[in-house]
């Protein structure tokens, strides 16, 4: 008994000899990123309910950090989140992990390993516009680091509650933990950045040739360790930041009541 069929019929979307559910991962990534994107757009659009200040708390949504109203007192005809969100958006869009994720699930280039792509496309990789811009990832990293500092400030700030007399006291609310979790995962994601790994030591050819090189080797090793799990941190931090906004928003809307633990 024998079947016929040439091997070389590899062109065309989804053409593969794979029998496992290769489509599952790109589908989940597509759904995950799209869901987050829709929520983030909506939340940024709102321009309100990003700060929860009841019961002395001070929880600021990460989508609205730093609080440009407070910092500069400016009033805009649109939500100031848009002035901020292009940074994390750019950081994630040019991130080496996310590039893999969306090239596969949005551009199907390729949809999965050893699976055919749509026919007749001109492939230019990252050598031509727009994807040549991916080369500026490190600049988004610099900017994202600034935002990260702001988020750390917010997280620390969320552990201080104002009493009716106007005095700040250390305390822990569920919201403080949410914001702390958020900034911790964002740090793990940001500090595992491939560009950082390069800048901090990866660009050296010799790690032992000078005292500075030896120090940079230690830093490089640390970043490398985080970088090993860059993809999981990318997803955990994405979830964390979305959840932090949602939590603050629900509290601010009065839908949810923050619980003070300590």
């Amino acid at each position: 008994m024998a079947q016929t069929g040439s091997v070389l019929e590899r062109n065309g979307l989804g053409v593969t000899a794979r029998r496992d559910a290769w489509w599952l991962q790109p589908l989940l990534v597509f759904l995950g990123l799209t869901a987050f994107g829709v929520y983030a757009m909506w939340a940024a659009w709102q321009g309100n309910n990003y700060l929860y200040q009841a019961h002395g708390a001070y929880y600021l949504s990460p989508f609205y950090s730093p609080d440009l109203h407070v910092l500069f007192g400016i009033q805009l005809p649109f939500s100031f989140a848009f002035l901020i969100l292009w940074i994390p958006l750019g950081f994630r869009a040019t991130c080496y992990y996310y590039r893999k994720a969306y090239y596969r699930s949005y551009f199907l280039d390729p949809p999965a390993c050893a699976v055919g792509e749509p026919k007749g496309r001109c492939y230019r990789g990252e050598r031509a516009f727009p994807f040549i811009l991916q080369n500026f990832h490190r600049y988004f990293f610099y900017l994202a680091t600034l935002l990260l500092l702001s988020l750390w400030y917010d997280a620390v700030r969320s552990f201080f509650f104002r009493d009716p007399a106007g005095q700040l006291h250390f305390g822990v609310g569920v919201g403080s933990l949410v914001l702390l979790f958020n900034v911790l995962t964002l740090s793990a994601f940001t500090l595992g950045c491939n560009s950082l790994r390069h800048l901090v030591g990866g660009r050296l050819d010799c790690f032992s040739c000078s005292a500075a090189a030896r120090t940079r080797h230690k830093l490089w090793s640390g970043v490398s360790l985080l970088n090993l799990k860059h993809a999981p941190w990318a997803w955990i931090s994405l979830f964390a930041v979305g959840f932090a906004d949602l939590y603050v928003r629900l509290c601010a809307m009065g839908v949810w009541h923050d619980v003070r633990i300590f």
């Binding site: 080496y96 590039r99 893999k100 090239y103 596969r104 280039d109 390729p110 390993c113 050893a114 492939y123 230019r124 990789g125 990252e126 050598r127 994807f131 040549i132």
Partner: peptide, 9 residues
């Protein structure tokens, strides 16, 4: 190198 789109297969 620029043709690689780091999809990691």
């Amino acid at each position: 190198l620029g043709l690689c789109n780091i999809t990691k297969c």
